[in-house]
């Protein structure tokens, strides 16, 4: 009979028992609500062993890829070690190897972690300073390809972390990274799916990782990247992205500015208007939205109304406060 390993405890399951039933039966206060596979309160992660058959039905593919499953559904077929979603996140020491200004208010950080740091390009991590100050940033590169971790930091006036990074941080400084978290990453397996990537500010970072990951996996469907900013000075990585688009006919890179003159690969107007004019139907598309929270939430609704399925919309709102999603 299968057993569940949870927080150092071993729970033997009765025949036909779900993970949730087993945990509750053992007196463990496992989170749950509807017990019918809808509310997702009971979401857990399989860290060793297969999630029970049927327990990942209806979940986003990124969640499935991370081993997330609903403990109220399915009966385990083998021993299974799980964590609850809150328990996720390891902290590992790291050394800053490079600090470079790559945009008007964007600094690129590269770090080498003391131990392998498992993550998917585009997920976010918390960067932790020696005194404990922590802020979240998205990873912008691919772990399998590079031996460093790349983060794009938007420098905010008076930002506690970003100000320190911009003014004082030097190569060789010891920090830590915690995580990873988030569902903004490329999931192989559907190479024909058209991808729409929309980002403002350093929301570009995860999209840059996703774009490279898609190409590395031989993605065969169109990949549209919209980079939004108020004016041209708010853009960064433009040359790299233009070169990438030139080298890959599948990639269309469009800069979207609120102010400026339209040009080749450059549109002027609100992103949602540009999107609606150029891509009125998003049925069958997979969409990643990253950056300014108001914009991300507004676009999420609009791309859904334009036909993208809910489970194919991944939104990462960059909130400007500690402990939220990728931020300051």
């Amino acid at each position: 009979m299968a057993a569940i390993l949870y927080r150092g405890q071993r729970v033997e399951l009765a025949p036909g028992e779900s993970v949730l039933d087993g945990l509750l039966g053992a007196g463990i206060d496992a989170p749950h609500s509807c017990r019918s596979g809808h509310c997702r309160t009971c979401l857990a992660r399989a860290v060793d062993g297969p999630p029970p058959p049927g327990s990942q039905e209806g979940l986003k593919d990124a969640w499935r890829e991370l081993g997330l499953f609903l403990t109220c559904k399915g009966v385990p077929t083998a021993d299974l070690a799980i964590t609850t979603v809150d328990d996720l996140g390891l902290e590992v020491g790291a050394t800053v190897t490079e600090i470079a200004r790559i945009g008007r208010d964007v600094v690129r950080l590269r770090l080498i972690t003391d131990a392998p740091f498992e993550h998917r390009g585009g997920q976010f991590v918390s960067l932790v300073r020696a005194d404990g100050l922590a802020r979240s940033y998205s990873t912008a590169n691919l772990p399998g390809r590079d031996d460093f971790l790349e983060l794009h930091v938007r420098v905010i006036k008076d930002g506690a972390m970003s100000g320190w990074i911009a003014r004082e941080l030097a190569a060789g400084t010891r920090v830590a990274v915690r995580g990873p978290d988030g569902e903004c990453f490329y999931v192989p397996g559907n190479p024909q799916t058209p991808l729409l990537l929309v980002g403002t500010g350093t929301g570009l970072a995860p999209l840059f990782a996703i774009l490279q990951d898609a190409l590395r996996h031989g993605h065969r469907g169109p990949i549209v990247l919209l980079q939004g900013a108020v004016d041209a000075g708010g853009l960064y990585l433009v040359e790299e992205l233009e070169a990438l688009a030139r080298a890959n006919p599948l990639v269309e890179y469009v800069r979207c500015l609120l102010r400026g003159e339209p040009g080749v690969g450059l549109e002027v107007g609100p992103i949602h208007s540009i999107l609606k004019a150029r891509w009125p139907s998003l049925r069958g598309w997979k969409v990643f939205l990253c950056g300014d929270p108001d914009l991300v939430l507004d676009l999420r609704k609009r791309v859904f109304l334009a036909g993208a399925a809910l489970r194919d919309i991944h939104a990462d709102a960059f909130v400007m406060k500690p402990r939220a999603s990728s931020s300051v």
Partner: peptide, 22 residues
Amino acid sequence: DMDSQAAKQKGFLTMVLGGPNH
């Protein structure tokens, strides 16, 4: 939040369709 709203709607639709629900 659209994801949690969708989860609630799924519960509602499952219920009115006579599927497994609490």
